[in-house]
Amino acid sequence: MFTYLLRRLGVAVLVALTVSLITFSMIYLSGDPAVALAGEAATEEDIESIRTYYGYDRPILVQYGDWLFKALQGDFGQSHYLKQPVALVIFERLPTTMMLGLCALVFALVLSIPLGVLAAIRPNSLIDRTALTIAVIGQAMPSFWFALTLMLWLGIIWRLLPITGSDSWANFVMPSIALGYYITPAAMRLTRAGMLEVLSADYIRTARAKGLRPVTVLFKHALRNAILPVISLAAVQFGFMLGGSIVIETIFAINGLGFLAWESIQRADLPMMQAIVLVLSVFYILLTLLADMLNAWLDPRIRVA
């Protein structure tokens, strides 16, 4: 287990470094950053002074090292637009996005795991086919369209929930559904497939031969083994959802990181975008690492090797 963890951790660090390098080079993707910053009316001297002021005249590797070193200390520089430390702004917005992601994940799992289990107990039954239909529709439906539909019915026609803002829990209901619904189909099908496979395993027959109650057989013996891939999926999808929250937060005007990203793109606020991408990526890496560790811990064949 220990060597496994160490190896896994090493990989995670390498991936994080690669991501940071890519993120860093974002500045140069859109051309000379000094020119972009200086604006159209700038003279050659203005550009030159901006270049020295921001340190863009130094060798690239030095710039990267400097940037990374500061980023590791939580210093992402100043926002070009807000004239505030980037880290501070992100720190303010991050909890909202995490909250949204978590609510969406909980919604997705609470819906998909029981449905997947039901579908697996009675394959090809009405429940199974209904669940499959939901899954297919879910995967085919663009999330922004689904979000707008929700908004239309729940918010405007029935007036059940507030449409925009992020002040109360009620504001989170629709965005969570819209965001979480996106991963429900995959989680459900994975649960179903896992359960189907596990239910025909020999140890399930052993459990039944012991006279255990159906609930015990289903949840203790079957689901425990079928759920492992769902956990990995949930972690990976949680990362994707943070990305997806750009769309959802923008639609529902939720004051989170996704909305901030959207704003920063419009303002060409490079340090801010860089920091958001880096934070989300590192978070994603941490999540997959966590999922692997959780899986290893749940699977004695890895834990007690």
Partner: peptide, 9 residues
């Protein structure tokens, strides 16, 4: 080999 549940002691 397969009649015992791998997840429990």
């Amino acid at each position: 080999m397969t009649s015992l549940n791998p997840a429990y002691t």
